[in-house]
């Protein structure tokens, strides 16, 4: 039966060590914002103290510009939303020229999110960031091998051999820490986590969106122009939590939990389930200051269960 630690010793919130280590990547705290839910960070500069974040993952960048899918691109569902943006972005050249100088100046770790159509394209994208001068180079790269809205995107996330190979190629191509972001739309998340770990990933981000659909029955039409899209928000939190827990049982690689995290309780649940850090995603759309509120509440939440560091509670689930 689950039971809490006996007589937790009271800890002053100020004594809590918030720093986390994910393979070769060191972060000042475990509260990150997820790719595709934070634009290029500049958009939220007036509402969020960007310098305090544990990390920012800007919108996924591809080798060449992509217009993205036709509208409607998003639709609200019960406790969540579906999106099929289609990796709308101006391409890696524009990203490095236009957004990287700003991102490098905000004062928190930047983790570039990349998506390639092929192994070669993933490697090329990783090399581009590796070649950026030291002052502007991101702290790490997250491989988006799990976007459900572009053809080719999910194969790397659902075929273990392909996933391992692309991670291995990218790790070999760069000195930067490599994170693999995995999809929950697979039979066994543990199998995919093992594959990414075998490829040498410094960490795994779990989960990307859950494939879903919404319909207007009167018009007999799908609500998304792309017909299907990725479900996110509080509705998917139990799925994400389950994936993090299952993966953490299968691999030693650190895990970044993502999926429906909206407040301090959600964040703490993921840490206890086995995540070493968390990414806030959809909540940025409807409560743009949520990351600051989670960060503010974190020391007291850790102290409440007698922890003096984040790492002390990672994977501490009693079962």
């Amino acid at each position: 039966m689950p039971h809490g630690p006996e007589a937790p010793s009271p800890t002053a919130p100020t004594d809590v060590d918030l720093s986390v280590t994910l393979g070769r990547l060191q972060l000042p705290n475990p509260v990150l914002v997820a790719s595709g839910t934070f634009g290029y960070a500049r958009e939220l500069a007036s509402l969020v103290d960007l310098s305090r974040l544990g990390g920012i993952l800007p919108k996924t960048v591809t080798a060449t510009p992509r217009q993205g899918n036709a509208p409607w691109r998003t639709v609200e569902t019960t406790g969540g939303m579906l999106n099929a943006i289609g990796l709308d972005n101006d391409g890696v050249d524009a990203f490095i020229e236009c957004h990287v100088p700003y991102l490098a100046s905000v004062g928190c770790p930047i983790i570039a999110s990349v998506a390639g159509k092929t192994r070669e394209e993933f490697v090329e994208l990783v090399r581009r960031f590796d070649a950026v001068d030291a002052a502007h180079r991101p702290a790490a790269i997250e491989l988006n091998v799990s976007c459900p809205n572009v053809s080719g995107g999910v194969d790397f996330g659902s075929d273990p051999a392909l996933c391992e190979a692309v991670v291995r190629d990218c790790v070999a191509a760069s000195d930067l820490p490599i994170i693999a972001k995995l999809t929950p739309n697979v039979t066994s998340i543990a199998t995919m986590a093992k594959a990414a770990e075998a490829g040498g990933a410094d960490a795994l981000s779990l989960i990307n969106t859950v494939l879903g659909m919404a319909i207007d029955w009167r018009k007999r039409r799908p609500l998304l122009a792309n017909v299907v899209g990725g479900l996110s928000g509080p509705a998917i939190k139990p799925i994400a939590l389950r994936c993090v827990w299952q993966a953490s049982q299968a691999v030693r690689a650190p895990i970044i939990g993502v999926g429906g995290i909206a407040n301090i309780n959600d964040a703490m649940e993921f840490l206890v389930a086995g995540a070493s850090a968390v990414q806030l995603g959809t909540v940025n759309f409807y409560h743009p200051t949520a990351s600051m509120e989670v960060l503010d509440a974190l020391p007291a939440a850790l102290a409440e269960i007698g922890a003096t560091s984040v790492s002390a509670i990672v994977g501490s689930l009693n079962h």
Binding site: T37, G39, E43, L44, K59, P71, N83, F285, Y286, P288
Partner: peptide
Amino acid sequence: ETPMACGLGICFSCVA
């Protein structure tokens, strides 16, 4: 008036 999730420029839903 395009369908909008955030109003802030971070979701890329409301494109025209």
